[in-house]
Computed example of a mutant assay.
Amino acid sequence: MPTTSTSTAAAPEPDTERFTVITGGPGAGKSTLIDRLEHAGHARTHEAGRAVIQDQAAIGGRALPWHDRELFAELMLASDLRSHRRAAGERAHVFFDRGIPDIVGYLRLEGLPVPPHVHAAAQRFRYRRRVFIAPPWPEIYVRDAERKQSYETACRTHEAMAAAYSAYGYELVPLPRASVEERVRFVTQDIGREPA
């Protein structure tokens, strides 16, 4: 009679030096930069928070930062974990529009406790050590349907993200306040991949 094993082999750890995070406060140009990197042929992820807000607003859900911040954070975490797993299947460099430590920064910014499982996720699911952070930039800051924060809150968000990534051992690399093309060159030179 054949025997079945209840143990499963652990999946190999992905090469997380291929996973580059771009973070910062809202309205600092990071998503525009990642859009341009994607247009140049690079793999990318999409910002979890914006997608959760769009989906929840479309269905009348409560996982919105102005209704249920804890549930909003949980859905962002689930989305970021999926993005991390999908990126592990990519052979190329992947740019992340925010990462799991952003959730820690968000919770702390809101004065909420960081649950142990969120802390564990930030420790376990890693990214490239050098993380790009977009500084607050009042000249380009615009509110929209998903971005309701004031510029002052955007500045506080920047500080919260910087603190969160530093706490998990990442090195922060500030993006220049420059054109999108200059930012693309800055980022691709840093990772050693000039656009074609």
Rank of each mutant, 00 (worst) to 15 (best):
L112G: 04
D35T: 13
G192T: 12
A48K: 06
S179N: 04
D190K: 07
T153M: 15
A63P: 09
R128F: 04
F132N: 01
G29K: 01
E159L: 11
E13G: 00
F125N: 10
E171S: 05
K148D: 15
V173T: 05
G41C: 07
A63E: 07
D144E: 09
E182W: 05
Q54T: 13
A196P: 15
F95Y: 13
D80R: 06
I103T: 09
R147L: 03
D144N: 14
A145N: 14
A48M: 10
T6D: 10
Y165E: 06
R185S: 10
A121I: 00
L175W: 06
A92Q: 06
T45V: 02
R156T: 05
L172S: 03
E194V: 05
G61W: 08
R156G: 04
H46M: 02
P101V: 03
V142G: 09
F95L: 01
G25Q: 02
V131S: 08
R86W: 11
P14T: 01
G89K: 11
E74M: 11
P138A: 14
R147N: 06
V21R: 00
G61D: 12
Q123G: 12
A10V: 03
E17I: 04
P174E: 08
S83E: 13
F96W: 01
E17Q: 14
G169H: 05
